[in-house]
Amino acid sequence: MEDGFTTVSIIGVGLVGGSLALALKEKGLAKKIIGYGRNHQRLKEALKLGIIDHYTTSLEESAKADLIVLATPVGVFEELTTQLVSYLKKGTVVIDVGSVKEHVVNTLEKIFPDGIQFVGTHPIAGSDKTGFEYARADLFKEAKVIITPTDHTDIKTVERIMRLWQSTGAVVEFMDAAEHDKIYALMSHLPHLISFCLVNTVAEIDTNFIKYAGSGFKSSTRIAKSSPELWKDIFMMNRENILHCLDVFIRKLDEIKTLMSSEPTEELKKFMEKAKKLRESID
């Protein structure tokens, strides 16, 4: 088990944390998986489903691991690690699975002392479903995982974490944390924001209209079912990048509004054809 870990602690046993636990077990990359959380009953259910091997509500106990995975909402990372750090043994590796990287990496690197290796990671895999009930071992198969090392990150640890993610079926890419946040503000965070706004537009006009939703509305707004607790943290931590993308999006709305207000339809058609062509490039 050269690239595996004897004991892994999942801090926050939800969809992503639970799926990673299952993947590590399936690939034989962890002998024991500890699940940490605050809800005894939920942790018992995760244990019963075989997602974890042991559970605890004690951060001190969860720190007795070779690899610790931060899989809670990003907004509580700083509080958790501040409490966790005094219990960690030298040589422990810590990773996160949050979708904001610059704030997380800069903050956590200052908290962890020498001898504790932190590697920022972001698996581009998930669902509007939340909770370990939806966890599955193949969630990361062919999914991108972005790793955001810094000048302070130990290269051997980075390579070990890279191989760990690759073993789950993921395709690993390295990226600067600031660049990551610019990209995913546009490719993930803005779509979630727009989805929430689209559903709230229905609420503003007439909530009864929602019962007439067809496949187009449902597919466009699926991600509005995502966890508000999770996404409020993401929106605020990456707000500058998201607000920039939102400004561009508002300009696009103004552009199509102007096109629809005039009689000629050719420019309106070109506007949509441009979008259609780019969207088809990722099918």
Results as ranks from 00 to 15, higher is better:
residue 229 E to Y: 11
residue 115 G to A: 09
residue 207 T to D: 14
residue 65 A to K: 02
residue 168 T to G: 09
residue 236 M to I: 08
residue 10 I to Q: 10
residue 128 D to T: 08
residue 25 K to E: 14
residue 81 T to F: 12
residue 233 D to L: 04
residue 190 L to F: 13
residue 241 N to K: 09
residue 12 G to L: 02
residue 104 V to L: 10
residue 166 Q to M: 12
residue 68 I to C: 10
residue 162 M to Q: 14
residue 118 F to K: 05
residue 28 G to P: 11
residue 92 T to P: 08
residue 89 K to I: 09
residue 61 E to D: 14
residue 211 K to C: 06
residue 52 I to G: 00
residue 249 F to G: 06
residue 281 S to M: 13
residue 135 A to T: 01
residue 83 Q to H: 05
residue 51 I to S: 00
residue 174 F to K: 10
residue 161 I to W: 03
residue 211 K to Y: 10
residue 144 K to N: 13
residue 18 G to P: 01
residue 120 G to E: 06
residue 206 D to K: 11
residue 169 G to P: 01
residue 195 S to Y: 08
residue 28 G to W: 10
residue 225 K to S: 12
residue 111 I to H: 03
residue 199 V to L: 14
residue 120 G to K: 03
residue 277 K to L: 12
residue 30 A to W: 03
residue 132 F to V: 02
residue 132 F to K: 00
residue 239 R to E: 15
residue 137 A to S: 14
residue 45 E to Y: 02
residue 20 L to T: 06
residue 127 S to G: 01
residue 209 F to H: 12
residue 213 A to Y: 05
residue 275 A to M: 14
residue 37 G to F: 06
residue 188 S to H: 07
residue 183 I to T: 12
residue 256 I to V: 15
residue 180 H to Q: 05
residue 92 T to K: 04
residue 109 E to A: 09
residue 105 V to N: 13
residue 69 V to P: 01
residue 16 V to T: 13
residue 34 I to E: 00
residue 6 T to E: 13
residue 7 T to K: 13
